[in-house]
Design a protein around this nucleic acid. Structure first.
Lengths: 328, 328
DNA sequence: CTGAAAGCGCTTACAG
DNA sequence: CTGAAAGCGCTTACAG
């Protein structure tokens, strides 16, 4: 049994107009008389007609599809991001062609996928692209947007939270609380987010009388949990642990709890992202909330606005500190 | 600047063959001489040619796109499900057209979206469809698969974990541990998953000397947390709390902890799904692991196998109990 | 405002 | 094994 597609021709016959007219009825802005429009709509309804987006895309070269690539990780932050993108793109009439990638870098294979379907832009979140992939895409006039990542080498747009500044302000806050022994647990060190947060934090303390210890994590809960526990078992109990993201901070928090360290009295814990779980009573983690609504909107603007910016643009947004039970 | 698409014609010119031949080179199984194939491939490489999936889909009526619809919820279980679907579908050469829906029921609007792009099947997870939407889809010969939901009224396939039986076995386990006072916290009561788990649990205890209390939750952590805390504050501390899913159980667990109830000595806690967080040391939640790998595979088989089953099929898979720190 | 016609980039019988 | 041609379902100048 073949899938039967009702075409504009059938509607045209039923409505006694030409196929062109049917097409016009379904093209916003085309001139059709009200009478004709009604006649056509009635026939279309009857036949359950629906314009074929493929045929339309073929001729207009506007597919209304956006490629979204994401790396497969545990961070619920990206789940929220995905939800926002999908919804807001739909509002603007775009569909999302979705790809999960298992590699740190988006592969040519996945990009080809997008290319075959003629997506109008590619949004990459929590993953990177090699520069020749970007070059190729840009040559094809397909804008690429890095979300929550940036890379100076790459000729593409980026939308990020101002991680450096956020980390500085966190540093300033804990210093004000009297902290003289701080730990930063990194995420994956090759990510700009982890680097920026680390640099901002260190930078604030540059000429202060505070010890900063950097522990190399990988954005997983488990790694962070073990790093923290090891540190405590070696006798080092810092006054604050700042995790490169919430998941990292949560791992540290649980390790502290297991070791019966008083929180926040003895040790404060701060994360980054403000994922849903951080607000759970059991955790009540202080964290930096990324302004993901605005971030997603900016990203979408970059791909949908009429006159696209050609120069790679780096958009930084602020966000804010959320004070909960793990800070004084 | 227009997006320029390299077409088969350009490749044909460069390789000195007809456009049909170029097409054949890119059609698996078509007969082309090795010599011609090489010549064409070389030209294609040079021009960075890529067959246009839209044009191909238009003529073959095989778009290789699968529509995936999901409701916007906090449960990381669905994040894992999404990841598995995307990866496994890609392996089989399918793309995923993704839609998040905010409503309990997938709307006509979203389905139209899928229809316009001529998806070959629609997979719906954690959401429902109205029966006339399904009828319309089936009439168009587009198979619909409910994942982790089922509905007898609907003429579509379903892939679920055998929730009734799993809940029975959980009942049997805790009864064996001497439990005579059990609480079940439901999820959204209009979901088959919550209903089945509840029914299985109750069913096991039908003629046993055990009190069963049903608390109506909604699959959120917060609701479950408050339900549990209220119950404890009223003086009712049951011997086991079985949550309709892990998030629900986690909410209950945190409430118990806050009230200093000994776990699992005084009260055991059991969830359902085995999301990643359940294995975190701080929680170490006992739960029922759904066999999501197999479930996803079965679902994909249903849509990709050559001779599709016409009769709506309900596939039930077992899964297994994961014993952790919240049970004796 | 409306119709006839060309064309988007492909696949696939049909010949040879 | 290969080419010429028809056609998938649409949009869009071009006339009228």
């Amino acid at each position: 049994m073949e899938r039967r597609i009702v075409s504009a021709i059938e509607v045209a016959k039923l409505a006694n107009v030409s196929q062109s007219t049917v097409s016009r009825v379904f093209t916003p802005g085309a001139s059709v008389s009200e009478k004709t429009r009604k006649k056509v709509m009635k026939a279309a309804e009857e036949l359950k007609y629906q314009p074929n987006a493929l045929a339309r895309g073929l001729i207009t070269k506007k597919t209304n599809m956006i490629g979204l690539a994401m790396k497969d990780i545990q961070n619920p932050f990206y789940h929220e991001v995905l939800g926002l993108f999908t919804r807001k793109l739909k509002e603007k009439g775009y569909s999302v062609l979705f790809v999960y990638t298992e590699n740190e870098e988006i592969q040519q294979e996945e990009i080809n996928h997008f290319l075959e379907y003629n997506v109008e832009a590619i949004i990459v979140t929590d993953a990177l692209l090699s520069s020749n992939v970007v070059t190729r895409l840009t040559a094809n006039n397909i804008p690429v947007i890095l979300f929550n990542r940036h890379d100076k080498e790459l000729m593409c747009h980026s939308v990020v939270c101002d991680n450096v500044n956020a980390a500085k302000r966190i540093g300033s806050y804990v210093y004000g609380q009297g902290v003289r022994d701080a730990v930063f647990i990194t995420g994956k060190v090759n990510t700009s987010t982890s680097r920026d947060r680390q640099n901002g934090f260190i930078d604030f303390f540059r000429d202060k009388d505070t010890d900063i210890t950097i522990l190399e994590g990988d954005y997983t809960y488990e790694k962070s949990f073990h790093l923290t526990r090891n540190m405590i078992q070696k006798g080092h109990i810092p006054e604050v642990i700042f995790g490169a993201n919430d998941i990292t901070a949560l791992g540290a928090l649980d390790a502290l709890k297991e070791c019966k360290v008083e929180i926040p009295k003895k040790t404060m814990v701060i994360g980054f992202d403000d994922i849903k779980m951080s607000s759970w009573p059991n955790y009540s983690l202080s964290t930096w909330a990324q302004p993901i609504n605005e971030m997603v909107e900016k990203a979408i603007d970059l791909v949908t606005l009429k006159d696209r910016i050609q120069e790679p643009e780096l958009i930084k947004l602020e966000g804010k500190f959320i004070h909960r039970a793990t800070t004084k």
